[in-house]
Amino acid sequence: MTTTAPVREPAWDLPRAAIRLWTAEGAISTTLLWVGIGTFLLLVPASAGGPFPVLRWALPVAGLLHAAVVVGVRPRLKHRVYRWEITAETAYTRTGWLTQTWTLVPISRIQTVDVTRGVLQQMFGLATVAVLTASSQGTVRIWHLEHGTAQRVADDLARRAELVRDQAT
């Protein structure tokens, strides 16, 4: 990582299963994209004029590129970027792959803690922890933790938030 990060990076990384989940998501979106491309190639005749002759080879090339990025590159890149940490006072995450976002939420401001398990996440034994504050911007999501870890983190955060009397937010 760059040395000019605004704060030190969060200490903990995500489980390897997250890479598999992101790869699966990439594979699904690739499949959908190729269904679209296939339909296009089947329905648009080769003799059509305008931009279509160019599109007939440009679309598959773009599709291949997309597949390579979302299946081959993005999951690993994301795994390197996505990090999280729960310190004594804050819940802290870094997310994104091209645009990276650091989010800190003071534990004293936590209003609600959600644990969500999507269908795909359940197949990989993962869960997302969302920490909600009273601010409309202040939601921190810790993506793709192992389910047991997520449950522990949520319980811990809720218990600690309960101990700090909140200040009139």
């Binding site: 609600t112 959600d114 398990r117 949520a154 955060l157 809720a158």
Partner: peptide, 14 residues
């Protein structure tokens, strides 16, 4: 939640 499960925890103090 039917397929996607969601567990929401609200501390009593909040």
């Amino acid at each position: 939640g039917l397929l996607a499960r969601a567990v929401r925890t609200v501390p009593n103090d909040r």
